[in-house]
């Protein structure tokens, strides 16, 4: 496992814009730090395999805790970046209904403000943030429930539960002959 995934808002990490001409090339926007909000000096992240084979599972796990399926923006950071900054990481089982993915959750811990800012700079200078469009995210999520990998009745938010059940019922309807 060598990639660290953090859910973000993609526009906060995009810089090629007329409104951001004032920003130095290597600097992240201040707003980007909102995507790295810590609690008790910990930052929740997910571990993704080099070949990204578990990426969709991690995305489904993160979607499964929400009210609805929307687009999914994320950044991937190389594990070695954490070593470079001296950031500690610990495996902590995720708390999502998608149990098979929870093992890939981790916390960055004992984070200082300087480390967090350095991490933001590394994210900024690293890979371009990625996006899974809403329609694709919906297809992924519905498939996970339809295949039985994720149980609809274990979804914590009623809106999402109702929506996914309706989607599957629609899929199961026999085509009119």
């Amino acid at each position: 496992m060598t990639l660290i995934l953090r859910k973000v808002k993609k526009p906060r990490w995009l810089k090629d814009d007329d409104n951001l001409r004032w920003l130095a090339k290597e600097e992240p926007q201040a707003d980007a730090l909102r995507d790295l909000e810590t609690s008790e000096n910990k930052l929740s992240v997910w571990l993704v395999a080099d070949d990204e084979t578990n990426l969709h599972d991690v995305v489904i796990a993160l979607i499964s805790t929400g009210d609805l399926v929307s687009k999914f923006d994320y950044v991937l950071v190389e594990y070695k970046v954490l070593e470079k900054i001296g950031i500690k990481i610990e495996h902590v089982e995720g708390q999502t209904p998608y149990k098979q993915a929870n093992k890939w959750h981790a916390n960055l811990y004992e984070l200082s403000a300087a480390q967090l800012f350095q991490l933001a700079r590394e994210v900024q200078s690293g890979r371009t943030p990625e996006r899974i469009q809403e329609l694709v995210a919906k297809q992924m999520f519905v498939s996970a429930v339809k295949d039985g990998r994720l149980k609809a009745d274990e979804l914590p938010k009623p809106n999402l539960q109702t929506w996914v059940i309706a989607e599957i019922e629609n899929l199961n309807k026999a085509p009119l002959s």
């Binding site: 995009l14 090629d16 007329d18 943030p129 996006r131």
Partner: peptide, 16 residues
């Protein structure tokens, strides 16, 4: 659109 990343996202929406 001047921003490459945003242009790619809009292209995905267009394809959709």
């Amino acid at each position: 659109e001047k921003n490459c990343a945003l242009r790619e996202d809009l292209e995905q929406v267009l394809r959709q």
